[in-house]
Simulated scan of single mutants.
Amino acid sequence: ILSKKSIEIETSLKKELSTYRKKHVTLSIDSIIDQVKESINTLISEIKQEKEDHPKLLRNDHIKAEITDIFEDKVGKPYEKKRLDELSKEAEQRYKLEIPPGYKDASKKGAKFYNGEIILEKYGDYILWQQIMDFAKEKQTNIIFITDDDKEDWWYYSKGKTIGPRSELLNEFSNKTNQEFYMFKPEVFMKQAGKVYSENFSDNTITEVKEVSKESGDYPLFVRDGTNYMSTLSQLNQFYYGEHTFEYIILLHHNKYLSDSFLTDLTEGFPFGEEFSCRIIDSNIPSAKSVNYSFESKLAIKVYLDDTWIVGKSEYFKNLTLTYFNMKLNDCQVEILE
């Protein structure tokens, strides 16, 4: 942007100041213009250096390493197959009667493969709930559960306000464990914990946690529910960033293995004039849509438009994206998923 503006300013100043060259011969118009250009170029150099210094977490993720250390030896033991089968049957019966938690995920697609067992994602919340109660019984301890899941199979709402955990959950927990159960959304927990430990979290920090929690909770819907994802995403876009935002999914078909770091570096060269962000959804999964390619990778591109937004700009960026990838990648087919 600064490079573009520098050219515009130089052209404008040369035109508007040209009449002063004869009137004020001692005034160096060229020197004035050069100083303006030099100031802008200095800013550009500083920004380029900041870009170089910015951590590339896909190559050396110190945050992930710290989180891994925090969770070391703090994750519960998984259930064996027999117990998982029992819980799956229990969940099905409870979901039919809309007994919390988890019944809102009854239609969720997908599965996870863990420790040799296939676990359907729709049973995840119920399995978690049983593990929490097992832990409380084993350790004879009260539980504080922090979750960004805001569905009504966990929370009781009244007139749009969150009242607290579903009464069925409190009753079941107390009955089976003889302990107390507390549940918080992340931003609420931060406020309460801040009061207890005299830690002042800024409003910006709490707002950021709230937005990240919301986005991380809703984002995987694309992977699980296919086309249903985009309508949800559209609502999220308007809620968080206003109407001048659009996002689309790029599906790459390729034979060569593409590392996440390579894909990240590739997207940094996008010729976008507007602010944008890129997220890797999947990379190098076996190709299901094309017999000519071995792998598929999905990227999500979100573009934040300024006040000069005009109808049709999203189509322009889609075409630009297709052109860019086809130019940068050999033996690759690019597809825009609506």
Rank of each mutant, 00 (worst) to 15 (best):
T227W: 11
S231M: 06
G217A: 13
T227C: 07
L233D: 08
K214I: 07
Y229Q: 02
L221D: 05
T245R: 00
N255P: 02
L251R: 11
H253A: 08
F222L: 12
L233S: 08
Y240D: 02
N255Q: 05
S216W: 00
S213V: 06
Q235E: 09
V212W: 10
N228E: 15
T227D: 13
L236Q: 15
G242C: 04
M230F: 15
N228P: 00
K256G: 02
F246Y: 05
N237F: 06
G242P: 03
L221E: 06
L252C: 03
G226H: 09
F222P: 00
L233K: 14
G226Y: 10
N255K: 03
G242I: 04
E247M: 12
T227F: 14
I249F: 06
H254K: 00
D225E: 15
V223S: 12
T232H: 08
Y219C: 06
R224K: 12
D218S: 07
D218V: 03
I250S: 01
Y241H: 13
T245Q: 01
Q235L: 14
F246L: 03
V223C: 02
L236F: 03
V223Q: 10
S231D: 10
Y241I: 00
G226F: 10
I249L: 06
T245H: 01
N228D: 13
I250N: 01
T232W: 03
L233R: 14
T232F: 03
Y241M: 00
I249W: 07
G217H: 11
T245D: 01
N237W: 07
T245Y: 01
G217N: 10
E243D: 11
E243C: 02
Y248M: 09
F239R: 13
K214F: 13
P220E: 02
Y219P: 00
Q235H: 12
G217L: 08
K214Y: 14
F222M: 05
N237S: 12
I250D: 01
E215I: 15
Y229W: 12
H244G: 04
F246T: 02
Y229V: 00
K256V: 07
Y248R: 11
E215W: 15
S216G: 04
E215S: 08
S231H: 07
E243N: 10
E215M: 15
K256S: 11
